[in-house]
């Protein structure tokens, strides 16, 4: 089936994962080379506060992060950041946190008129049902290329193929969700980060490149050499997350 997709030029190298560098490009990049695009924090239509039970829990191989994706809301983000997006030296990809299709559609139409924005990346709350995800993706299809963010633990789900056939321009692989026990015995849920995720990311990449849609790999990268490995395995580029906060780990000789 011939699917009408917005083509997007994706330079190999690195881009930041949503939620790692804020809502506008920083004055200086945390790595020596600039990214090939800047991805904003997830932006919801209405303001969202941090989760009441926000936390970070370290564990062997990584950490669990639960923040609730706080966001000032779409209107406030545009008011505060659109001028910086317009001045940006790198293309801006706005990450939308989808909740209702009408909201996603409103944000998409407005972003199409916003200078500096070259793509939309979309994710959805984990409790959103498969048919609702399809509606959200449909609402975000328009004049801008659309990157569908897929958590590593959801790449095998049945809704994915019909979602990709809606005209998604690229896929980005995002952190899987998991649960951990706090010292108090309380179970917490959140996104998983860390080098233990990298084998999952590699497996997901191998599977998703078979769709023929450009795949932006991500998850667990701590070393520069791992970017090269993911590109060789078929990734169009690589999204970096926590390594932007800690700096590269030196390469080890195998």
């Amino acid at each position: 089936m011939d699917i009408d997709r917005q083509r997007m030029a994706i330079e190999p190298g690195w881009i930041n994962a949503a939620g790692t560098l804020g809502l506008a490009p920083p004055a200086s990049w945390p790595l020596p080379q600039p990214p090939s695009a800047f991805v904003t924090n997830p932006i919801s239509y209405r303001p969202r506060r941090s989760a009441q039970e926000r936390c970070i829990q370290t564990m062997p191989g990584g950490f669990l992060l639960h923040t609730g994706w706080p966001s000032p809301g779409f209107r406030e983000v545009l008011r505060q950041y659109r001028a910086r997006w317009a001045r940006s030296q790198v293309p801006i990809w706005v990450h939308l946190l989808g909740d209702e299709p009408t909201h996603v559609e409103k944000m998409t139409r407005q972003l199409e008129e916003t200078e500096g924005v070259e793509a939309i990346e979309i994710s959805y709350a984990h409790e959103v049902m498969p048919d609702e995800i399809l509606d959200l993706v449909r609402s975000a299809i328009g004049e801008l290329p659309l990157v569908l963010s897929i958590p590593l633990d959801r790449i095998g789900e049945a809704w994915l193929r019909p979602a990709l056939e809606l005209g998604v321009s690229a896929i980005s692989l995002s952190p899987p969700r998991g649960a951990a026990l706090r010292k108090s015995g309380q179970v917490i849920h959140g996104r998983l980060y860390g080098p233990a995720i990298l084998p999952l990311a590699m497996t997901a990449l191998e599977r998703m490149v078979q769709t023929g849609i450009p795949v932006i790999a991500g998850g667990g990268v701590m070393r520069q050499s791992e970017i090269d490995g993911l590109i060789r395995a078929g990734a169009a580029t690589v999204q970096l997350d926590f390594v932007l906060w800690r700096g590269w780990q030196a390469d080890k000789i195998d």
């Binding site: 560098l21 804020g22 809502l23 924090n41 506060r49 926000r54 970070i56 994706w69 706080p70 906060w245």
Partner: peptide
């Protein structure tokens, strides 16, 4: 409190 991003991300975990 843990501040993993140092203000780079406004990740909200330290709010």
């Amino acid at each position: 409190t843990p501040m993993p991003c140092g203000g780079m991300a406004d990740c909200g975990v330290c709010s």
